[in-house]
Structures are given as C-alpha cells and as structure tokens.
Design a protein around this nucleic acid. Structure first.
Length: 313
RNA sequence: CGCGGGGUGGAGCAGUCUGGUAGCUCGCAAGGCUCAUAACCUUGAGGUCCCGGGUUCAAAUCCCGGCCCCGCAA
C-alpha cells in the first residue's frame, strides 16, 4: 500500500544477517548496510568478513565497514543514502547522537529481551542464567541511554527447560524479524503507540567475558546448570581437571544427594560424572578436555583416569 | 607465516622422551555364577599403530613431507 522506504541496516553477526534477509524480503528497500570491519579470527588468524557483510555483498547492497563511526566521512555516507529509518541489530557499537537523529524516524533497534528487563549486550544469556520462565523480543527507538528508548512492539515466548542462549536466540531471531517488519509498517501508518519504559523495572544484561565461563563450584547446582546453558555457545563453561582445561558443554541437576565439598567428583562410573557443588550435585553430561574432542560423559570416563574423590576447579 | 596438543582393534585412552612380542577402561560374541545387578567370573573375535618417504639388524616409537581433528587466542 503506502510508500516504499529507503532503509539503512546496521548489524554484524549471523542473527543480524538473518534479520536483514527478512527485511529485504519486505516491502522496503535496503539502500545501504553498515557492519564491523573484518577481524582476524579462528585458528590461523585468518580474516573473514562477518555474516552481514557477506550477505549484503551477495545481494549487491552497498556495504561500508568503518573502523571509526564518529567521523564526518562516515556521516556523509549515511546521509547520502537518505534513509527514512536506520535499523540496528547486533551491530556491536554505541551510536552517537548524530546517527541516532540522522533519519526522520531515527534508529530502530531489535533487542532480544522483554525490556525494560535485561538492557545491555547479552540479554538472551542473562534471561537463561537468571532462570526466567520466559524470554522475548522488543523493538524500540534507540536513544543515547543504553536500551532505554520507547518500546514499539514486544513478544514473549516460554523457555524450554534445556534452553541455551544459542537455541533461544534461534527462536527469537525470526520473531524479531517479524516484529521489525510490523514496526516499520506501523510507523508508516502512524498507528504505533510507543511506550516509555518503566525505569524502576529496568535490569542489566552486561556483556559476557571469557572468564565468566569459569565454573565456580561454590555456587549451587541450580545456578551452575543455568550458567552452563546461558554460556552456550559463548563463552562456554570450563573448569580444571588435574591442571588441564575441561570444558563443560552440557550438564543437569543430579537427582541424588552426595556428601562432599564443592568441586569434588562424587561419582565417575559408567555414564555418571557427578560433581558436588555448594548445594546439590550436578551431572556433567558432555565435556571436552583441552586439545581433545567433545565427548559424552560415558565416553570421557572410559579414557580419563578419574575416580570419586578427585577434584575439579 | 599468531601459539600449542593430537590421529593406536567398534568407542574412549596408555605406550612414543630412553626403538626390541600391541596394553588399559568399555563395547561385541560364547559360556558360567549369583541371596548379592552401578552385577560378577572365564574364554574368544577384532589392529594397514592416519598416509607417503627416510634412518636402522629392528620403527607405534627417531627424521622429513602430506592429509585430518582439536585447545588457546580473536
């Protein structure tokens, strides 16, 4: 029906690329894409363009990957595209006011939590780590304060009991893409009623660091199990076994109770690899010793010389 | 040229430094035992020790090259 909007898209990882694909399938025209510059990554330190870059290139959409975004040159590029709105999905940078106000409808962000809860870089992960029963997606107008802008649309889903950040993100991405299209349509029609966030309800979802993955056995089994799920696929959870790094890919609460101190292996037999925490026992179900392949607990135990009484951490 | 570990019967590992008959925990097959079932005991089958070359009387082991897997880092 209404007009065709020129849109600029800013994003970097796979979820952003998936969202961009859906945006391209909509009624509007993505006239330009902004993404992070190539960085060396992976074994061998090869540099490769991020998913959004590859997608845009394949579609023949103009792409820029500025090292710095607070430059007049970059602003000129954005202005030349003359966007009606700028869509931001996991771009990975704080945008300055000049960019937030560059388009007539400002910057539209897809955020993977039920704002005002979990403002910040890792909303899906913290939703799981804190044991929430539901997660969700919010579209909102970007403002200078982190994730504090007025809410356009929001949708919630229930979490599975074995939900990981990866699986949750996978579920939320298409929902977010749908909300994004609905939001843009609503903005065009003027039917959208942006809701200011309730500041008092706001909580934070700070960016995760590699060290967050180190398992603290003084936490409870419940907490550790949630964190293991929340840290998949990144940064992953790990502990130490006889001085060697041991990654924990999957774990669950063991039904049995065992005496022991936090970090003590209370049972390592057949398919049971049980570790005592400060409160309760946790069963490691899939682990990976440094330099080795990831293995189900049962396989790992056959080769590892471990026994009840040995200690992790 | 980012750093590093590894490839050994069906699975997971030891053995490699210090070259000399292929080992452990399982699985599989057959038989046995039991009030004892995270069962247990006995016997058995199953291996080009990743590939190619070199050194040597002799190579899983030492040297060179190749393929594949993985940890750190990002």
């Amino acid at each position: 029906m209404s007009t065709n909007w020129p849109i600029v898209f800013m994003g970097t990882p796979q979820i952003a690329a998936d969202t961009l694909e859906r945006l391209c399938a909509g009624p509007d025209t993505v006239v330009g894409v902004v993404t992070q510059p190539d960085r060396p990554s992976g074994r061998g330190q090869k540099t490769a363009p991020p998913p959004v870059h590859r997608f845009a290139e394949a579609r023949g959409i103009p792409v820029v990957a500025p090292e710095k975004i607070r430059t007049p040159e970059f602003l000129d590029v954005l202005r030349a595209w003359q966007p009606m709105i700028i869509v931001v999905v996991a771009y990975g940078r704080i945008l300055p006011k000049t960019i937030l106000e560059l388009a007539p409808h400002g910057c539209l962000n897809v955020h993977y939590s039920l704002l005002p809860k979990y403002r910040g870089a890792a909303p899906a992960a913290w939703t799981i780590i804190n044991g929430e029963l539901q997660g969700g997606v919010t579209t909102m107008r970007l403002v200078e304060k982190m994730d504090a802008g007025a809410i356009y649309l929001q949708d919630a889903i229930l979490l599975a009991c074995d939900e990981t950040t990866g699986s949750l993100q996978k579920k939320l991405t298409p929902i977010g893409a749908r909300l994004l299209l609905e939001t843009i349509r609503g903005l065009k029609q003027g039917t959208l009623r942006p809701q200011e966030q309730e500041e008092a309800q706001a909580t934070l979802a700070p960016i995760l660091k590699k060290e967050d993955g180190l398992i603290d056995w003084r936490r409870s089994a419940v907490e550790i199990e949630r964190r293991v799920r929340g840290f998949v696929p990144w940064p992953g959870s790990y502990t130490y076994l006889a001085g060697k790094l041991l990654k924990v890919h999957r774990a669950k609460i063991a039904s049995s109770e065992f005496a022991g101190s936090p970090g003590e292996i209370v049972r390592a037999h057949a398919d049971a690899f049980w570790v005592r925490t400060s409160s309760g026992v946790i069963a490691l179900e899939e682990v990976q010793l440094e330099n080795k392949k990831r293995l189900p607990a049962a396989e790992f135990i056959k080769g590892a010389r471990i026994k009840a009484g040995d200690r992790l951490g």
